[in-house]
Design a protein around this nucleic acid. Sequence first.
DNA 1: TTTT
DNA 2: TTTT
Lengths: 150, 150, 150, 150
Amino acid sequence: MAGVNKVILIGNLGKDPEVRHLDNGAAVANFSIATTESYKDRNSGERVDQTEWHNIVLWRGLAEVAEKYLKKGDSVYIEGKLRTRSWEKDGVTRYTTEVVGDQMTMLGNKKSDGGGQSSGYEGNQGQSQAAAPAASQTPDTNSEMDDLPF
Amino acid sequence: MAGVNKVILIGNLGKDPEVRHLDNGAAVANFSIATTESYKDRNSGERVDQTEWHNIVLWRGLAEVAEKYLKKGDSVYIEGKLRTRSWEKDGVTRYTTEVVGDQMTMLGNKKSDGGGQSSGYEGNQGQSQAAAPAASQTPDTNSEMDDLPF
Amino acid sequence: MAGVNKVILIGNLGKDPEVRHLDNGAAVANFSIATTESYKDRNSGERVDQTEWHNIVLWRGLAEVAEKYLKKGDSVYIEGKLRTRSWEKDGVTRYTTEVVGDQMTMLGNKKSDGGGQSSGYEGNQGQSQAAAPAASQTPDTNSEMDDLPF
Amino acid sequence: MAGVNKVILIGNLGKDPEVRHLDNGAAVANFSIATTESYKDRNSGERVDQTEWHNIVLWRGLAEVAEKYLKKGDSVYIEGKLRTRSWEKDGVTRYTTEVVGDQMTMLGNKKSDGGGQSSGYEGNQGQSQAAAPAASQTPDTNSEMDDLPF
DNA sequence: TTTT
DNA sequence: TTTT
């Protein structure tokens, strides 16, 4: 069935990434980023900031890059897809929607002396290999993912 | 401040849209669309379809277009932003992530004799007005949204 | 370093794709698609259609899919990147900007009895393999591209 | 008919923007941004950077923001659409493809003390008004565009 | 929980 | 013409 499921975000990390390493060696990073939208309230005329939080999941190479280079407050570009998971708690089914990233570009942080893209990293774009081997999520580096649930 | 929150989906409606009309006249449409991703399982080598469901919210003109023209099974392009709402039920806080659409293009349905883009509709693109007045979500048609929560 | 170069198009083919097969076996497809934007002229109040043509280039598996399944008039979703080539003609340097596609989803044609996504094909999305082997542009199927200029 | 024409770029300005002010008061900014893709050459195994240049056009409020805040070397997020113009020179028809931006987010520059999003600006997102009046390109602020060719 |  |  023809389908497109794409998310593009630029936001700031609320905390440092949490990275787990699975038994098979695969790394998984979880963190949240905030995107803020500014608009003028139609009644008061005052400026309002509305912040949205997004749960990001990165696998393997991208998770390792996040572990090494991303920290609280950093600005990052994430491209990926939406995935909603369900889980039970106290007999109640709950749902969590996450963005599973397949591209990432670091956009710098406010404390660095150089700022901007000085700490830039970019995941695989299109059909090319990223320079950092660990950063690729293309199939040929994913032999370890066989027993992952997706 | 710097933030981007963008979602791009092409999928099929699971049911007809549910459209409510608020007291102030604004229409709100809710429906889900499925995006299906096909991949070959790395162990079995078999083809697997993974379907993801997305909750779509449309306001005003786009909601009215959805009410008139979209129905179960139709294929549609939706562009919008992620928004996570929280709500209480049985003393438990739950979260729902939705895609608030600001662009829509109908891509046809499999039963029409014409199919494809014959029933095409397109929301406002860039700075232009859509031909159908009801389909615009640009600010100048939104004076009725003053008391909406966003 | 930090860079993003992404194009997302939904449009109709102006002609059947032209597909060449290089000596090394790689296929290359070229075709144009039209995207039409409707807006109301601010002076006359009349509806105006503005059509934009985009030069699409597909390589290898996607080119073969295009050769087999795409034809004049078909609607297609293309995701890719911008690339501007320069070439000489009569001593004048000319430039052509193309969209090099890495994802494609067929959206049907208006003449098919089924229309819509019945003829759907989807390139590789994220880290998964497309079902049709020929349709993948992931690195592990690209050993033949070694002597291509990108 | 149904069409989508969307470009998303993150890159660095090659020079300061050139901004013209039309007789009717509308501002137009032109500048180029570079996006660089890194990949490992399949033969030599060496890392290669491929840079692509994109011609950006901004109108009205976004042009004024560019004039005030963007300069050579800055990193910027641009969202817009592709437009190809033709023009005559020495009896030869030439074509130029540009990205007409409708969203912009400044991502900082390497020399700022704060870097990152300190100089952040964001155009209108979705249906909200940007806080800076000059930054909006929504129709209700575009009465001056009546005699522009698009 | 971030950022401006 | 930028950036890392």
